[in-house]
Write a protein that binds this DNA or RNA. Structure first.
Length: 515
RNA sequence: GGGGAUUUAGCUCAGCUGGUAGAGCAGUGGACUUUUAAUCCAUUUGUCGCGGGUUCGACCCCCGCAGUCCCUACCA
């Protein structure tokens, strides 16, 4: 089995060869020999399907056999053969195209080609997974299934690897992620998830452009990583001989555009963070950030809510959906709670006095198993306790508002309370979905905040932000008062498609290198 | 990083108190002109994740390593 003569195959193809593959390579070899004699292509590209499975079902499923059959409506289809039932001189095959499945009925008499006998015999040896093309007439079988009586049948692509088991499909999570193409062939659920993802993207895009937002593209290679607190991926540009970073967020570039006079911009962006993986973290992920001049965080909350609702409704036709077996109601106005308010609601064991007592909070957070930073102020301690006790309980859409200044270096401080910012995060199903705020547009304040971040970085916080002098220079030209928000689209798609892991909504999630 | 689960044929999965492996599907050969995961008969396929150890003997017990999944930690 290890040293069979296979002159056409390269060395690496032997790595996971099975006897099934060997068998199919033999069939392909035979096809090549026939093609040489007949001077035809082994992998022809001259067959053009004119119909798709879903449309055929939509058009003809409702017609009864007596009405449909006599019309002998001609169709041309192509797809991957997923099921095959040979019964002597007649056969059924089920093919799958990008819209669905349709059954073919093949018998020698119906084939019009002069070599019908040879074609039928050849068909018997075609494999599940092969791509075939068929011309024929619509009809219904005696059990009423819409089918095509095939008059012309061609093998368009020979498949060498066997498909997963035809009934149970692919169950191995690792193969589903590593070989998504196989998962997509076999799982309608997976196909639907990514079709839904596409709908979410276009719904959001049209919602944004419908509200006068300009779609823009900003750099993914950053000389200074900025816009979020996260560890960046580092790379190097050879010609410029400079270190560069994959962006952790597009924020600072989008705000430069607001300075430039684009009052409403958005970017559906891939960002990269060099951090751990989990069911809700992938090292590269997609979000939508948008900025609107002359708005504030109250406006942003209203707008974000509408945007999320539009995306959910685009897929489900309703804003009340189910996630992990529990209802999520996005139809009503989203609740808004301060950090302290959320703790009081979801962890009522704490008194207001305790929640305003930094020493108590510090001790309580340690008890929960987290060590707060030494320099953490009251607000940061309250936030830490919120994350420990309340965050995961925010199942229904909830805005948490007024984040402390010390953890919000790009947000505008509240005019009423200099310790907090006009910032919110949106939680749904206990997960952060969005983060937005009235932007800090005071260049000197922003410069001071960057200085604070640099001190934190020197003190060992390797996720503190860098000082971005050009961004400060931009603000010095004057940025109008602006609201800006980022929505985690992978997580939103998880919610909308009832997916338990972010990997289920990313076509090719990151995995360790194969052994 | 820590904890738990898991890894057996191409796929889906069995495998007893330790006696060197099975089924279904797929494949191959045969029967069959309306099947629906077609059916029926026959039949091929394994480095039991990898490396050590214990044992007369290891898929099974022990140790180490690796992949995957989940929890946790880290993390807007």
């Amino acid at each position: 089995m290890t040293d069979q003569a296979q002159p056409d195959s390269t060395e690496e193809t032997h790595i996971d060869e099975s006897h099934v593959i060997t068998e199919r390579r033999q069939k392909l070899k035979a096809l090549r020999e026939v093609a040489k004699v007949t001077k035809s292509a082994v992998f022809p590209n001259d067959f053009k399907p004119e119909h798709q499975a879903a449309a055929l079902h939509a058009e003809y499923d409702a017609l009864d056999k007596e009405t449909l059959d006599p019309q002998a409506i001609p169709v041309v289809v192509a797809g991957r053969m997923m099921l095959k039932r040979v019964m002597g001189k007649a056969s059924f095959a089920t093919i799958q195209d990008s819209t669905g499945r349709i059954q073919l009925f093949i018998n020698q008499q119906s084939l019009t080609d002069e070599n019908s006998e040879a074609i039928y015999e050849a068909f018997k040896h075609w494999d599940l997974g092969d791509i075939v093309g068929a011309k024929g007439a619509m009809f219904k079988t005696k059990t009423g299934e819409l089918s095509i009586k095939v008059s012309e049948l061609r093998l368009l692509t020979k498949s060498i690897r066997p498909l997963p088991e035809k009934y149970h499909g692919l169950n191995d999570q690792e193969i589903k992620y590593r070989q998504r193409y196989v998962d997509l062939i076999t799982s309608e659920e997976t196909r639907n998830t990514f079709k839904a993802r596409s709908k979410v993207m276009s719904a959001i895009r049209s919602f944004m452009t419908g509200n006068e937002f300009l779609e823009v593209e900003t750099p993914m290679l950053h000389p200074i990583p900025g816009g979020a607190s996260a560890k960046p991926f580092t790379t190097h540009h050879n010609a410029l001989d400079m270190q560069m970073f994959l962006r952790i967020a597009p924020e600072l570039y989008l705000k430069r555009l607001v300075v430039g006079g684009f009052d409403r911009v958005f970017e559906i962006n891939r960002s990269f963070r060099n951090e751990g993986l989990s069911v809700r973290h992938n090292p590269e992920f997609t979000m939508m950030e948008f900025y609107a001049a002359y708005t504030d965080y109250q406006w942003l909350m209203d707008y974000t809510e509408q945007c999320v609702r539009a995306a959910v409704t685009a897929v489900h036709g309703s804003a009340v959906i189910s996630y992990d077996g529990k209802e999520v109601d996005l139809s009503k106005p989203f609740e808004r709670l301060t950090i302290v308010g959320a703790i009081q609601k979801y962890a009522p064991q704490y008194t207001l006095d305790q929640l305003n007592d930094a020493e108590f909070l510090r001790a309580e957070i340690l008890k929960q198993g987290t060590k707060p930073f030494d320099h953490a102020g009251l607000g940061a301690l309250q936030l830490a306790l919120f994350e420990e006790t309340a965050e995961s309980q925010l199942w229904q859409p909830t805005y948490i508002i007024n984040y402390p200044v010390e953890v919000s270096p790009l947000a505008r401080a509240s005019d009423a309370d200099a310790e907090v910012t006009e910032r919110f995060e949106l939680f749904i199903t206990g997960r952060e979905m969005a983060n937005g705020f009235s932007e800090l547009n005071d260049a000197e304040d922003q410069a001071a905040r960057f200085q604070e971040q640099m001190k934190a970085k020197e003190a060992g916080d390797d996720e503190a932000m860098y000082y971005d002098a050009d961004f400060i220079r931009a603000l010095e030209y004057g940025m109008p008062p602006t609201g800006g928000c980022g929505i985690g689209l992978d997580r939103l798609v998880m919610l909308i498609t009832d997916s338990p892991s972010i990997r289920d909504v990313i076509l090719f999630p990151h995995m360790r290198a194969e052994a």
